Every structure is written in C-alpha cells, then in structure tokens.
Amino acid sequence: MTRPHPQIRIRAGHGGMLIRDGVSISFYISHSHQDITQRIEHSLHVFQHAIAPASLDWYCDYEGDYRKLDGAGRMFLEQEFRSTSSAHIHLVNHTNGVGDYEFVYRGQWRENPNDPDASRSLSTVTFWLPTEFLESQGPVAVHELALKLSAGLPFTSGHAGLAFNAQFDLLGVDDLVDRERLRHPGIDVPDESASLHLSNRIRGVHWMNFLGPPVLAELGGVEALHERLKSPDTTVQPLAEGRAVITLGPEPDAGDTTQSPVLPAYRELARVLEPWMYFWGNFRPSWGREAQRRWERRFLD
C-alpha cells in the first residue's frame, strides 16, 4: 500500500465489532440459483484457498443464529446449495461482531410463479476481506483474487473495493456509519436490497468495476471506454464472454473530503456510467431520502 487508508473500528460495549473497514468483492448475476450452483460453490473454494490459513468456520442458520460449521452445518450448506428454488448462505470466520472474512450468497428463484417481480431479482455473492489482508498481501493480490472469482461467474455487473462491514440491523449503527461515509466517499456502504431492483444497472463506482452484457455493449465496448476514460491510472481490461473490468488506480482509495481533489478518476467514470447507474434513494430510512440521494450521486454532483 502506498497511500494510507482510514482504520475504522467501532466496538459494542461487550467488545464485539459493530463496524470495521474492509474490502468487499461482489457480483450480481441474472440467473436463478439452480442454474449457477456449481459456479458459486467453485468460487467459494477459490476464496477459501486464497484466505488460508484463515477459514470460514461458522454459518448462519434459518433463525439468524451463527453455529459452528460441523457435520450438521455441512448438511445445512449441502441442502442450501442443492435447493431447487432460492438459497441463502452466510459464512464467517468468527462470531464476535462482524467477521474479518465472510462469504454471503443469495440465490434467487427468478421463475417463481407466485412472485410477479421474481424475474427482476438478481442472485448475488459477496466475499469480504479485512483490510489487513490488503495491507499484508498487497493490492495486486486482491486484484488477482477478484479476477479469479469473476472468471467462473456469469455476472451482469460487479465491484470490488473498500467498504463498511457493519451490523446494520442494530440500532444506531447507521448513524455511526453516516458520520464516517461523509468524509470518505471511496468507502462503499453495502446495500443488500439492491439485488431486488438493480436489474441491468450499475451499483455505484468502486475501485474495480465489472461490466457485463448488456451495459458494456451499450457503452460501445472496451475500445469506447478506452477513448472516454482519460485518467492516467485507470485501466480497462477485457474479460471472457463479452465482459470487462475497469480499475481505478493501482489500489483502492477511500478519498477524503477535507483534501482536494477528491477521487477524480471515480468522478470521471461516474459521468460515463451515469445513464446506467442505479439510484434507489430510500434504502436507509434513518438517513432520509435526500441524504441518500446525495450519497448515491456523490461522484456526480
């Protein structure tokens, strides 16, 4: 790492981590769970190999409780992966607050005859790394891992970069994150509801930005992006099956609104992607619609 990044660690009274800085790698997939099961399992194996000797030893059960990944836990995973409808798998490396390493998969049933909006939902998978991994292994290793994870997934879009890993379901956590996000626009605030509405749109601008069909084709492809993106550290890399990844600099940057300029490469890409950007506007009621709009448009206004 050549640029310092903010260390954000907020603990609850009992010592569990409420909020921490981390690195998220996420992909949005316009396929039902049963069509991508093997690919998701493969991506999990790739991730587990990359983070060793750390391991994902705990899983979240149907009641939302975390349990040791023992024989019963492996049966639970097998049941979820083999489901013919939807699936929800959440693995972590510890249960003392938010994990350092996490795997979160939400497989949708897009053909559900009882849900008229099911076809709009995307299956999503997210891999969490602590920033300590970024610091010890280096941004090149994180970049290569994100590419390896993307290689087996038929994603519509995806992203990788700094993000707040937080227990958003707990009272007061939104307010704590709000204070930090205003200063550091390069740290993403995850939106688990986005997969229900995202469709073919792009969820914000990040360090690594994965584009698939149809957006990449509508943008004119890789060559057109080369022509429109002039920031010296921005790279556009073609991927298999009509996909590409845009990387904004050699490493993720949190940005700092007390300094200038603030993430000019991110702003440039946001202007290019604006017609395809996803703006929800009200996903966190505690922030208010206008505050959320300003956050989503932070690289545009």
Rank of each mutant, 00 (worst) to 15 (best):
E251G: 07
N114G: 03
N93T: 06
V215L: 12
Q34C: 13
S30C: 01
T37S: 13
S83V: 12
E111L: 01
I51L: 04
E296H: 04
P232R: 09
V104K: 07
E63Q: 15
N112S: 07
D188V: 07
D21Q: 09
E132P: 03
D35R: 12
L198G: 10
Q7T: 13
P264S: 13
F168K: 08
R120Y: 05
S136E: 08
H42L: 04
F168A: 10
L176R: 08
G99A: 12
Y101D: 03
V215M: 02
A265T: 03
L18C: 07
E132G: 11
D256H: 04
A244R: 10
L69V: 10
G64I: 11
G97Q: 10
M208I: 13
E63V: 13
H143E: 14
L145D: 07
S136I: 10
L176Q: 15
C60D: 09
E290N: 08
H33L: 14
D117P: 07
V215C: 04
R297M: 14
H49K: 15
I51Y: 00
W295L: 11
W287A: 11
L56T: 03
L171F: 11
L170M: 14
D253F: 05
D175T: 13
A52E: 01
F210P: 13
D115F: 00
F279D: 12
N200Y: 08
F133K: 04
G13H: 01
P238D: 13
Y278H: 15
H49E: 15
S26D: 09
D301E: 15
L149W: 05
R120P: 11
H42N: 10
L273Y: 11
H184C: 11
S43G: 06
A12Q: 12
P130K: 07
N112C: 00
E290H: 13
G220P: 00
Q108A: 14
I51V: 08
S199I: 10
E296F: 01
A224S: 10
A224C: 00
G15Y: 05
V46E: 11
R293A: 15
I246S: 09
I202N: 13
G161M: 06
L170A: 11
S157M: 10
D256S: 05
W287G: 08
V98M: 08
A265F: 02
V205C: 00
D256W: 05
R201K: 15
A141S: 05
D169H: 14
R74M: 14
Y66V: 09
L44C: 07
H206T: 14
P154S: 14
D35I: 06
P139H: 04
L170R: 14
R74A: 11
R284K: 14
G220L: 03
F210W: 01
L162P: 01
T234C: 01
W295H: 07
E41H: 03
R74T: 07
R20T: 06
D21K: 04
S121Q: 13
D35C: 12
A166V: 00
P285H: 15
N200G: 10
E290Q: 15
R179H: 09
S193D: 14
S231E: 08
L44Y: 02
I36C: 13
Y278I: 08
V173K: 02
R11F: 07
E80V: 12
P113C: 01
